[in-house]
Nucleic acid binder design. Sequence first.
DNA 1: GTTTCATATGTCTAAAATGACATATGAAAT
DNA 2: ATTTCATATGTCATTTTAGACATATGAAAC
Lengths: 176, 176
Amino acid sequence: MSIRYALLGIISKKPVTGYDVVTIFKQKMIYFWSSTHSQIYKELHKMEEEDLITHQLVIQGTSPNKKVYSLTDQGKKDLIRWAIEEPLKPAKIKDEFLIKTTIFPILSEEEINQLLDEVIEREHNILAKTKEWKEHFHSQGDSDIGTILTVEYGIRYSEMYLEWCKWAKQMIQDKA
Amino acid sequence: MSIRYALLGIISKKPVTGYDVVTIFKQKMIYFWSSTHSQIYKELHKMEEEDLITHQLVIQGTSPNKKVYSLTDQGKKDLIRWAIEEPLKPAKIKDEFLIKTTIFPILSEEEINQLLDEVIEREHNILAKTKEWKEHFHSQGDSDIGTILTVEYGIRYSEMYLEWCKWAKQMIQDKA
DNA sequence: GTTTCATATGTCTAAAATGACATATGAAAT
DNA sequence: ATTTCATATGTCATTTTAGACATATGAAAC
């Protein structure tokens, strides 16, 4: 039941292909949802069987043919029902870096700084992409409230992470 | 390979039971790792078979007998190897609330506010528990750098989330 | 006395998710 | 010419995870 509503939510915005969904997860939703193309294609098939979505085959000259999915009435109804009626499940997070952080006491200062630099670079890249995306949709005149809120969340999340890293570095230096 | 190092990390601090691990995940690591007792017990068995941990049976008068696990030399070696050598994998996050956020445009203002209030309450509770824990380990004179850093992360994470919610509420009111 | 709660450990089935394998087009780069 | 890249869709085996079922103790609440 997990990925289903993420997919319905994406498709509700505008018709998209499975390939589009993959890039949306990677580029625009990285800080609150993740999946792989194998799971996405499988779930799209299942959802079409259950009449929540349909697709239109688009033959392209340039690149391979694609299936553009859109919501059925039932799909939209189910999405809204889920959003309003289903009790909110706690977020599921698996952040390996924080696990590594817990064992800093058994690592050397150099090793710790190396790990922190690695994660800082990762987070910088994510933040840069998120800001890029924000600029892009603003320049397009897009004022979708869902997009505005989630992009702001992404920026705040990454900034929090980076500030915490900076604080952690200072903390470790002071302790040493 | 996922939960393994989370478990090794926890056990490296001090010997614990499977039951302890369950509560640690729930109370102290909720904002960066999650699992269930069925998975934890299974993985502990597997890790013991592979000689990464061992247990000592403790017979208690009051409550049921328990298995207290500790790291073997091999377990500690593998944990450090993982931390230093294995490339950092991106965090995997599944936050349903942000999915719900993306479809705010097809919900009513009342429904949106209800959802936001729900998540604000959830996050308040998490923050309260994290702060309680921080007070507790400070009062115990615990100055484990791993704990200090992760608890600070938890507080910053929850505060970021709550501030974003507040901002979102304002944003939605202004738009209406 | 009976239920509920915290402690404590396990199994089992089903669902979800990962990662590898597999294929195909057209454009661009080397 | 050949490789690489972006686009595009799929399968399959294995691993991971979730959630239900199962049991047991002692203390506390009702």
